[in-house]
């Protein structure tokens, strides 16, 4: 894309654009309307703008939407879409249709820096932060866009490691001048990058999903390097600073690994750690990745774990696996095979 994309700009950014071009201030609201409510793909389609305004805009900008390059469909109806980013890298998004809701799982980065042992995205390393344009393009260019009921930021990347663009995209999705979605239709995940998570809690009203996977420091360190810096204990301590109200949900994601984090001790550890936090726990079946030293717990163990936690008052559910056959399930998104080999490393 040689021109600057309009799609992904907030209303205040659009105001700055029109001011720069010497256009009337109200044009920015009109542009936002065309972009985020009518989803036009060219500036020429913005027919209530004057011809002169459209010419001026076209000189410097374009809408900047790019349709997905391809998709794969699972036997369970899940579809995995491949999108190209503005610098010719690739990301994936997973569309999960259900009876009463249709969810899109979107990416926030190409690759990821967090290095979690169980995650396929981690294996490709980090390539770049997505712009708000690239984050929103996954929604706007989705063929099923108009059927969507929910969006989750649980695809490739750590959303809190790209907090500026994630917040910008959330503003556009939830603002009256934007998609005007309720923030309760959006869930953003994190492994617990505490300072950015604080910003997210303070500046957005979307739900928060925290990848926990172990209540114990030494064990969590082996699974998730972030624990060396931001421990689960500090993470929970930070959550105690906020009142989430009755509508906003915090959930803890817990992938169950056979013989690693699925014992009665872990139930006890979770209860101790999460004491006083109004939350729910989602237990996730581990989808094995190649050459992984980890195995998934069996469903009987997961049910035992769920029941024990539920008995102690924490709403706990086992998340249904979706799209495993097309590598669209939790922790399996990756565009590593599409990366150009980088020979210039220091190791």
């Amino acid at each position: 894309m040689s021109k600057e994309a309009l799609y992904g700009k907030t209303l205040s950014e659009l105001k700055a654009c029109v001011k720069d071009l010497g256009l009337p201030a109200f044009t920015s609201k009109q542009i936002a309307d065309w972009l985020y409510k009518k989803h036009v793909t060219t500036i020429d389609d913005m027919t209530n703008l004057s011809k002169k305004a459209r010419i001026q805009l076209n000189e410097k900008y374009e809408v900047g939407l790019m349709p997905p390059q391809s998709f794969q469909e699972s036997v369970d109806g899940t579809k995995k879409y491949l999108y190209q980013t503005n610098n010719n890298q690739f990301i994936e998004a997973a569309y999960l249709p259900e009876e009463n809701r249709n969810t899109l799982c979107i990416s926030s980065q190409v690759g990821c820096k967090m290095g979690c042992l169980f995650c396929m995205t981690a294996r490709q390393g980090f390539q770049k932060n997505l712009t708000s344009n690239e984050i929103l393009n996954q929604i706007a260019s989705l063929p099923e866009r108009d059927t969507l009921t929910n969006v989750v930021y649980m695809g490739m990347g750590e959303p809190m490691d790209n907090i500026e663009n994630v917040l910008k995209s959330l503003e556009i999705i939830t603002a009256e001048w934007g998609y005007a979605w309720s923030p309760r239709r959006i869930n953003v995940s994190t492994i617990g990058v505490i300072p950015a998570m604080r910003r997210f809690i303070e500046e957005s009203e979307a739900h928060l999903a925290i990848s926990l996977h172990s209540p114990f420091n030494e064990e969590r360190k082996q699974l998730m390097p972030i624990e060396n810096v931001y421990t689960a204990e500090k993470l929970v301590e930070a959550l105690h600073d906020y009142d989430f109200g009755r509508q906003r949900r915090i959930s803890f994601e817990y992938i169950m690994f056979k013989g690693v984090n699925d014992s009665a001790q872990h139930v006890k550890g979770l209860l101790q750690l999460l004491n006083g936090i109004k939350c729910r726990i989602n237990l996730i079946h581990f989808h094995p990745i190649p050459n992984s030293p980890l195995e998934g717990s069996d469903y009987k163990t997961m049910e035992f774990f769920r029941d024990k936690l539920s008995q102690k008052g924490i709403t706990t559910t086992i998340r249904k696996s979706r799209g495993e056959d097309i590598y669209a399930a939790c922790g399996l998104l990756s565009t590593k095979k599409l990366l150009k080999e980088n020979s210039d490393t220091d190791y």
């Binding site: 820096k113 967090m114 290095g115 042992l117 980090f126 750590e158 490691d161 990058v193 064990e219 360190k221 082996q222 390097p225 972030i226 060396n228 810096v229 030293p293 980890l294």
Partner: peptide, 12 residues
């Protein structure tokens, strides 16, 4: 090497 013998610090 067992995965629980490997501890990593990452830059981000």
């Amino acid at each position: 090497v067992a995965f629980d013998n490997i501890i990593a610090e990452i830059y981000f």
